[in-house]
Design a protein around this nucleic acid. Structure first.
Lengths: 166, 166
DNA sequence: GCCACATTATTCGAATTCGAAGCATGTAAG
DNA sequence: CTTACATGCTTCGAATTCGAATAATGTGGC
């Protein structure tokens, strides 16, 4: 396991592993609560809350980007949410290609019904284990990481826009 | 959105959102690299590295717990890894029910081949955006969260075998 | 105006995931 | 020993996920 390449600092790796494992556990708990309490998945909850905090409507692309999801996956979920009467989809006025997704009253009601329990889960699983200072610090750190990654395009999937001998 | 329940501190929520979003992005990047470079998923990579650092072999349950995965999901992945010749499965000597999973030389070779690139991705996506101090702090914080959640059983799914109306 | 290319969303098929049910083995109580 | 339950893993079906291909609309250069 120890070879000639630039060996990583064990401390760095430990941080990475702890980060991934903790978030994995947290996701499971959150998912479980939302499923039993509101009969929705975390993705669906994310879509609804994003719509709610965005004054009611967003396009599919805006949603997919925010939720860090594939377009096709979002199409599927939007279909389910629409069938359930929690959102509506309508063609966008400005751009004929876009779809405007709007949260319904029923959707808002569901969010409001589930939110307290959701927050309670977060409190018990995450917030309670940290001091205010640590929590504050965690927020700052992860915001930096998030911004850093948003700014940095993936290595190989970089769009081949670079001049191909024009 | 603002009602009568114990409203969460916006700062707390911001930390949670940043945490989830950043990890989501990170997972995508890592997954993408492993797929293109080694033709394996992150789960499979996790299984292999866990085996490698555990002196070669573990039981299915130990693996599933460590990887935060469903048993059935692990069975599926183990099947793929075995077909690919990266691990072997054999009945455990002590416990006739258990399966001992062992990493093969080919499995170790794959890990060693992919590891440098993997670490490079982590460096570029995660480590580079943080000071040593922040990284250290992040590790400590997430370790605390992880331990806290491991210690705390999920709220509703806790008791499994409650007798059904005797 | 017209042509090439970018952008938006969906459909499709394949792969992965989970939970419940099933099977076999281990263990404790009587 | 025998019954009752616990544990370890797999099988099965349903749901979810992604990426590639597709269709439709927008935009820029000429």
């Amino acid at each position: 396991m120890s070879e000639d390449f630039q060996a990583p600092d064990p401390q760095q790796l430990a941080a990475f592993f702890a980060l991934m494992e903790a978030v994995s556990l947290l996701q499971h708990r959150v998912e479980q609560h939302l499923r039993t309490d509101g009969k929705i998945s975390y993705v669906q909850f994310q879509v609804l809350t994003r719509l709610a905090s965005a004054d009611g409507q967003l396009t599919m692309t805006q949603l997919a980007d925010g939720v860090v999801y594939s377009r096709s996956g979002l199409t599927y979920q939007a279909g389910l949410l629409e069938d359930a009467g929690l959102i509506t989809r309508s063609p966008s006025p400005d751009d004929e290609r876009s779809i405007t997704v709007t949260i319904t009253d029923k959707g808002r009601a569901l969010v409001n019904r589930v939110l307290p329990g959701h927050v309670e889960v977060l409190r018990r699983q995450l917030f309670d284990s940290l001091s205010d200072d640590d929590l504050h610090r965690l927020g700052d750190i992860m915001a930096m990481v998030r911004d850093h990654m948003r700014a940095q395009p993936p290595r190989s999937a970089a769009p081949r826009k670079r001049r191909a001998t024009p």
